[in-house]
Amino acid sequence: MSEFLQFLFSGITVGSVYALVALGFILIFNASGVVNFAQGEFVMLGGMITYFTYSAGVPLAAAAVFAILVTCLAGVALNKLAIGPARGASVVSLIIITIGASIFLRGLAQVVFDKQLHRFPSISGDDPISIGGATILPQSLWIIGGALGAFLALYLFFSHTLTGKAVLATANNKLAAQLVGIGTNNMMTLSFALSAAVGALGGVLMTPVTLTSYDVGLTLALKGFAGAILGGMGSPFGALAGGLLVGLIEAMTAGYISSEYKDAVAFIVILLVLFVMPNGLFGRSALERV
């Protein structure tokens, strides 16, 4: 039982990171129809910039805020310089552009920073808390809290603010949104900024537990993407649930079946879900217009 609890804790922790990546994915996907393969690099930037700013003597909290802001700028730049100019391009072109952006950011981090693994101190120390025979790190609670907080904030943003509704309107029907006077370009920029911020937050929170380096982005992007797909690529709730589910499946597989294939199971689940429910667990089907 305590063993199961241990796997559960680690699954929820890592799943929360995936959930943050998945939330970032759907923010951009909803607004622009683009799947951003550079989403993992936002997480990387969050962790790396925090580390190097902190190492330069800036207090951790300030370093984290700085990292999130810089990553936001990177997100906005991605939209303005790469996604925006490619408007109307085919899906394959867009996929290559965002993969190019991901390789570019990874390369840049390698040049500007280094190729080492880094970590900075946890927010509330490293003394494990024991619950029912299993233990959990205080930082894990921060990660879980971060994912829940980001989800809640996004949920409230979309359902209770005019700007949030404008973003949704842009996602649903860009032309109609423009006609009713929504600045759809601003909404795109906002979505990319928010998405980058959510990703960077994930990087800041996870680094004390999982460490970070210039190349952590790809794996995170794939897992987060898995979560987003599982959740139906639509609602923040789907992304949260999907991300957590991927983390849980992974932890349980690592614990009970094979740690070597823990990464594989996430993909097997994605393939099965896509085969059986091409629109994800929480997605709705759309009819092709003729």
Binding site: A82, P85, A86, A89, S93, G100, I103, L105, G107
Partner: peptide, 20 residues
Amino acid sequence: EDFEHVLLGLIMMLVMIFLR
């Protein structure tokens, strides 16, 4: 050397944007 990825990424983006 170190700039290999930076340049590769740039080329991928630029070609797809300008020579669609």
